[in-house]
């Protein structure tokens, strides 16, 4: 049986221990969220300048006289779910004509059906969107796209209006610079900038990216 001073001493020790644990916990939680925010806010490196005019070598269809939007996605990129959602929202805000292509990058050597994912299905379900396969990311390379979610918009005259992403951070829905600028450019021909950071998985494998200097 403890006497009163002993019990009080024990209680005080317990409180000090609890306070120390709570401080440690608070620091760990803040650090964890800080790391998560940092990861989500880190955009993909845009090593090359996307072509200023629609590349003549491109196999992607473009109707002269109509603006064209091309979105490159990795079929398994979880972050690009938000991009596809934002694409659907964006198309709801654009009133004028716009051809939309979603190019699904398919690396060589993958088995059949590797790129038949829910993400691709969602893109196909958006009215007015044409989904095409981009074998080995050849088209993505032509447009200097390195990350899933990379979007280019070319005007009716074939000149580049926009290059970048549609989300404000990695895999995060909501308003973004990219969507705002695209809508503004298509509706008024004006925007503060013609780019935005791209957040998404790398379209090429690490070895390929290293060779190309995009990693």
């Amino acid at each position: 049986m403890l006497d009163v001073p002993q019990a009080a001493d024990r209680a005080a020790r317990g409180n000090r221990l609890a306070a120390a644990a709570l401080v440690f916990w608070a620091v760990a939680v803040v650090t964890g969220f800080g790391m998560l925010w940092r990861y989500k806010a880190t955009a993909a490196t845009q090593a090359d300048e996307p072509p200023l005019s629609w590349p003549s070598a491109s196999a992607l269809a473009r109707t002269p006289g109509r603006p064209t939007l091309v979105l490159f996605v990795h079929p398994h990129c979880g972050c690009s779910q938000a991009t596809v959602t934002e694409l659907a929202r964006l198309l709801g805000r654009v009133r004028g004509p716009l051809d939309v292509r979603v190019a699904v990058v398919r690396p060589v050597g993958v088995e059949a059906g590797w790129d038949d994912t829910a993400l691709v299905g969602r893109a196909e379900a958006i009215p007015g969107v044409t989904v095409v396969r981009d074998a080995d990311g050849i088209e993505a390379a032509r447009f200097a796209g390195h990350a899933s979610g990379f979007t280019v918009v070319y005007g009716a005259d074939g000149r580049r209006l926009f290059a970048g992403g549609l989300t404000s951070s990695r895999g995060h829905e909501g308003e973004s610079f990219g969507s705002r600028r695209i809508v503004s450019l298509l509706e008024t021909g004006l925007a503060d900038r013609g780019d935005a950071p791209t957040f998404g998985c790398a379209l090429a494998s690490t070895a390929v990216a290293r060779e190309e200097g995009t990693e």
Partner: peptide
């Protein structure tokens, strides 16, 4: 379920 893997081409 939503995003188990981060991808780089075929690598995950």
């Amino acid at each position: 379920t939503v995003s188990p893997w981060a991808w780089a081409g075929r690598e995950r």
